Amino acid sequence: MSLPVINPQQPFQPEFAPLIREVIMCLKGGLGPNLHSVYVYGSVARKTAVSGQSNLDLVVVTKTAFESNRATLINTVKWRAQQGYPHVKGVSIRTAVVSDVANLDSIFTWGFMLKHCCVCVYGNDLSDCFGDYEPSWEIAKHWNMDVQDWLTVYRTKIAQAQSIDELVSAQVVIAKKLLRASYSLVMYRDKRWFDDPIECGAVFLKYHPEKQVEIERLGILLSGRSIPKRSVVGLIDVFGDWLVKQYQKTEFRIG
């Protein structure tokens, strides 16, 4: 069973469409002929973004690397978004070079992301280079075998947060990551794909009902409520450690 793709014909929400157009103009001006293509992913791509809460997440593909003006261009895009579109929480930009994307080694990373998580908004759509994907352990492990690394990063961010806003922001991100990684653990058995974190948690519980309390607590973190650091760190340590071990066990069993 092939995984679904996002309908590229469905229009973006009116709160976000003007910013997408402005960002494309800015990228074209800053990169010129080096710009190959631009993609939107995340809630804006799925047309489920929430004004005042959602980021605009982008992938920018260039023909050659552009390290010399990369920071300046990205900061300019973020500044213009902040000034003109305060209802957009922020702009996140991932960059790549065509040769790295359209590569057999990238089939489960860039290939899967562009095919099933993105919408091309400018240039030649590189997702056409890849066929349809089916739910598999290969997809799950390529996206989540580094779970231990980002658990460490966000555990530190939460422990060192200096304000409620910093704390809540880190809590929401780690909750999303843990819920999605939880479903990815069972995706090869469930044979579907979900991006919505709440859906991920709900389906995961069909296979691991003993984790009901942990999934409920992740849902609370995702809601944006301020939770004491000690409780969040405890959840990361206990559930995160279990998740890491499950990935290791499954990889050992399936290979």
Rank of each mutant, 00 (worst) to 15 (best):
M1K: 11
M1Q: 10
M1I: 10
N7F: 00
Q10M: 06
P14G: 02
P18L: 00
I20G: 07
I24L: 03
I24P: 05
L31I: 07
L31S: 05
P33L: 01
L35I: 05
S37F: 09
S37W: 08
S43M: 02
S43T: 04
K47W: 01
T48Q: 15
V50K: 15
S51H: 02
G52K: 08
N55W: 06
L58E: 01
V59D: 04
V60M: 09
V60E: 02
V61I: 15
V61K: 08
K63I: 11
K63N: 15
E67M: 08
N69K: 10
R70A: 11
A71M: 07
T72R: 14
L73P: 10
N75G: 15
T76W: 02
V77D: 00
V77A: 05
K78F: 01
K78W: 05
Q83P: 00
G84W: 04
P86A: 14
V88R: 09
G90M: 08
V91M: 09
S92Q: 14
R94N: 13
S99N: 13
D100P: 02
V101M: 09
A102K: 14
S106N: 14
I107A: 10
F108H: 14
M113K: 09
H116V: 04
C117V: 03
C117R: 13
C120I: 10
C120H: 06
G123F: 01
D125E: 05
D128H: 14
C129D: 03
C129R: 12
G131E: 10
G131Q: 09
D132M: 06
E134F: 00
E134A: 13
P135V: 06
N144H: 15
W150D: 12
V153Y: 13
V153T: 09
R155A: 08
R155G: 14
T156L: 12
I158Q: 03
Q162C: 04
D165T: 11
V168Q: 13
V168T: 12
V168E: 08
Q171T: 00
Q171R: 00
R180N: 12
S182T: 02
L185G: 07
L185V: 06
Y188M: 03
R189T: 02
P197M: 03
P197I: 02
I198D: 01
E199G: 00
E199D: 07
C200S: 04
A202T: 11
V203L: 05
K211Y: 12
Q212P: 00
E214D: 12
E216H: 11
E216V: 02
R217P: 02
G219I: 02
I220K: 14
S223V: 01
I227H: 06
K229N: 07
R230F: 05
D237L: 11
V238C: 03
G240R: 10
D241M: 08
Q248H: 10
T250A: 12
T250P: 03
I254S: 07
